[in-house]
């Protein structure tokens, strides 16, 4: 599998963690530290999936999702929101903004890569977490 994953995450430790897990499962990973940079990189690199931290400095993940969904060049790329908010409505909020899936932090290192691969293979939007 030679799929490209774009991770938009401002925390370098978390980026390193997700990148390590995904690369170990044979995925290629590129990273952006802000929403704007993420959108630029998505347009330029056309990744197969975007992992998006919701609490980003400046433009938050919900806005990033809406912008990606309204850009014809990248609107069909699946987006998985990764968030540590865990409050009522966060998940619904992310899905409403146009995300295809939702993963809560802290991520489970044993299943994280499999979850992402699941979303890569099932681009259809789903309301249920597959791993729950």
């Amino acid at each position: 599998m030679d799929k490209l994953v774009l991770i938009i995450e401002d925390n370098s430790e978390n980026y390193y963690l997700m990148r390590y897990l995904l690369e170990n499962h044979g995925l290629r990973v590129i990273g952006a530290v802000s929403g704007w940079m993420g959108i630029e990189m998505a347009i330029y690199n056309k990744p197969d999936i975007i992992l998006l931290d919701i609490q980003l400095p400046g433009m938050d993940g919900y806005s990033v999702t809406r912008r990606i969904r309204s850009n014809p060049e990248i609107k069909d790329i699946p987006i998985v929101a990764v968030t540590s908010y865990a409050m009522v409505g966060d998940k619904e909020h992310a899905l409403a903004a146009g995300a295809d899936g939702y993963i809560e932090k802290p991520i489970n290192p044993d299943s994280f890569a499999d979850e992402i691969i699941y979303y890569l293979n099932n681009k259809r939007r789903t309301d249920e977490d597959p791993m729950r």
């Binding site: 963690l17 897990l21 540590s84 932090k105 991520i107």
Partner: peptide
């Protein structure tokens, strides 16, 4: 919730790795 989970994410994640 956010502040506590962010460092925990690293601890649990890297320990798991």
């Amino acid at each position: 919730s956010h502040e506590l989970r962010t460092p925990l994410n690293s601890i649990i994640g890297f320990t798991g790795i």
